[in-house]
Every structure is written in structure tokens, then in C-alpha cells.
């Protein structure tokens, strides 16, 4: 009998006690930081001092606007030069992977997220007592100035944000004026997997401001969708704006960007380059991309 009991206890050791240990660890985790901050309790209108951003677009706006030392961590993508215009500045910061646990342990007083950040993560962070603010993505260039002001307001950097937003609005107006003489050649945006951003996307607005008509309208794409390569070829655009496969790591989805048919199409039309980082997020740098596309459009028109 005794032997059997001992055996049973030994068996149980890998069961319930382990779960209990895990529970303890979790409880400790949730209790360690939250009460401490609840006691300090920063005044509601004071500028946050420990900001963590978990969204690529918020990362870049915060990197541009935050005071030195104010921003603790940005998302992993912010360090990727293909996705982020602020990759260099982001190298100095810790990266996060959008996981509630790692974010909580950084003990932030403000978490910047995007509208489409995982609802489970945001919900968890809010339950843990953190302040989470979500930034909407920009679907048009006009919205960018508002995003800059909003981010500045959240960070307590209103003056810097206002200056940046005003400069942005002036640049945008100048760009629109310079596109007035355009003959509106038709440009097609084409990305990995045959994705084409639609009429209501930031990328299409970028094309319009640069003086192009977007082929996406002919495909009936609102926000964007997958366009078979043969439809793109048959549309015979005047300009193909497509990315290039990355050097590191292969993906079948990017092979379409060097498909012989697309290369042949590029050979016949103008070739525009619009790296992901210039259209994924609405930023002041987005206007630089529009300026480059505008120059490519003038080259194209001069050739005709």
C-alpha cells in the first residue's frame, strides 16, 4: 500500500504541482508591475514617459515625433529597411513582437497599436490596466496630417507634430499643383502574390497625386485584391509599378515579380519603383515617393 501511495505521489509531481507553479508565475507576473504604477499614477494629461508601439505605422510616426528616451520599443518590422523608412533610427530601440506578455513586462504607460492589431492582444493589455491607443491606417494622403497631429497629441509633442503636419500639407499642395499638367498615363501597381492595391488605398492616392490614372479602377478594385498576371498584361498599362523580390529568403509569392511576362511588360512600358515602405504606412516620407513617381511620369510623357 505504502509503495503504491509513493508511486502515486511521484506521478502527481508532473501534474497538478506544475500547473500550480505556472499559475503562481502568472499571478506574480500580473501583480508585479500593475500595482506599483497604480500608486505612482501619472497625472492624466502628463506626457507618457514609457511608450511602446506595436504597429509598424505607429512605430514610424512615434520614432519621428517622440522626445529622446520617450519611446521604449517598436515592432520588429520597424527595423526592416524594406518595410520601414525609420529602420535606422529603430536599430537603437528594443523590438517587440506584439505579444501581450513582453509588452506588459516593459511596463509602458502608453501602448500605440493599429486599428487591426490583434484584438486579443489589445484586450489583454487593457485588462492588465495599460493605456492602449489605436491609430487608424491612412487610406489617402490627406489623412496623414491628421495622423501626425494625433500621434503628437498622444505623445505630448503637439508643437513638433503641428510643424510636421503643416509642412506636410504645404508639400502635398505643391505636389498636387505640379501634377496639374499631367496627361494621366495609366499606371498599374503590382505586388507579391499578384496583389494590386485598389482605388481607395493609399497607394492609389499616391499614384493620383503623382499624375497617374490607376489601372486598379479598370479591374473594379476598391480596397485591393489579387489580379491574375494575364489580366495585368492584357490591360497594357503605360507604367508598371511593381516591387522586386527580396534578397534574403525566397517566397513563391514574390516570384511573380520576376515572371517573364511581367518582365516583358516592363520592357514595353515605363517602370516605376515603389518600395513597400513608401505606401504601407502614411508618413511624411510618402510624399517623397510621390515626387519620385511624378518625375517618372514626366519622363514617360516626354518619351511619347
Amino acid at each position: 500500500m505504502k509503495k503504491r501511495g509513493a508511486f502515486r505521489r511521484g506521478e502527481g509531481f508532473s501534474g497538478p504541482p506544475r500547473r500550480a507553479a505556472l499559475l503562481c508565475a502568472l499571478t506574480a507576473l500580473t501583480m508585479s508591475a500593475a500595482p506599483a504604477r497604480a500608486l505612482e499614477g501619472p497625472a492624466p494629461d502628463a506626457a507618457p514617459r514609457r511608450v511602446v508601439s506595436v504597429n509598424l505605422c505607429a512605430d514610424q510616426l512615434a520614432l519621428m515625433l517622440a522626445a529622446p528616451g520617450q519611446l521604449l520599443s517598436v515592432s520588429m518590422l520597424a527595423q526592416d529597411p524594406r518595410s520601414s523608412v525609420m529602420a535606422e533610427a529603430a536599430q537603437a530601440l528594443r523590438v517587440n513582437h506584439g505579444l501581450a506578455e513582453e509588452i506588459f513586462l516593459m511596463d509602458p504607460d502608453l501602448v500605440l497599436a493599429g486599428s487591426f492589431t490583434s484584438a486579443a492582444t489589445v484586450g489583454m493589455l487593457e485588462r492588465l490596466g495599460l493605456r492602449v491607443e489605436r491609430l487608424a491606417p491612412a487610406y489617402a494622403l490627406e489623412e496623414i496630417a491628421g495622423l501626425i497631429r494625433q500621434t503628437g497629441g498622444l505623445l505630448g509633442r503637439e508643437a513638433e507634430a503641428e510643424a510636421m503636419a503643416a509642412r506636410f500639407e504645404a508639400d502635398l499642395a505643391a505636389l498636387r499643383a505640379s501634377a496639374a499638367e499631367s496627361t494621366h498615363p495609366r499606371a498599374a501597381l503590382y505586388e507579391a502574390n499578384g496583389y494590386a492595391p485598389g482605388e481607395k488605398s493609399l497607394a492609389a492616392d499616391l499614384l493620383r497625386v503623382s499624375g497617374f490614372a490607376s489601372v486598379a479602377a479598370e479591374f473594379g478594385l476598391d480596397h485591393g485584391g489579387f489580379v491574375p498576371l494575364e489580366l495585368l498584361v492584357l490591360a497594357e498599362p503605360d507604367m508598371v509599378v511593381a516591387g522586386r523580390p527580396r534578397d534574403e529568403g525566397a517566397a513563391r509569392g514574390e516570384e511573380i515579380l520576376v515572371h517573364p511576362a511581367l518582365e516583358a511588360l516592363r520592357g514595353r512600358s515605363g517602370v516605376g519603383v515603389l518600395p513597400d515602405r513608401d505606401w504601407v504606412c502614411g508618413l511624411p516620407a510618402t510624399l517623397r515617393a510621390a515626387e519620385r513617381l511624378g518625375a517618372a511620369r514626366r519622363d514617360l510623357e516626354a518619351k511619347k
Binding site: A192, N193, G194, P228, L229, R246, E248, G249, A250, A251, R252, G253, E254, E255, I256, H259, P260, A261
Partner: peptide, 25 residues
Amino acid sequence: LSPNPFAAAEIVFWTMGSLADRSMV
């Protein structure tokens, strides 16, 4: 584990197969 963010989405291709966008290459 690929550094390419599109690669992970391609697990389906390697298990289900597709002839889309293939070329003479």
C-alpha cells in the same frame, strides 16, 4: 523561420500544389 514574410504563407502551396504563375523557366 524564413526572413521573408511571404514565405510562411506558402506552406499551403507546398502541401496542396498550384500551377498559377508558373513560367517557361
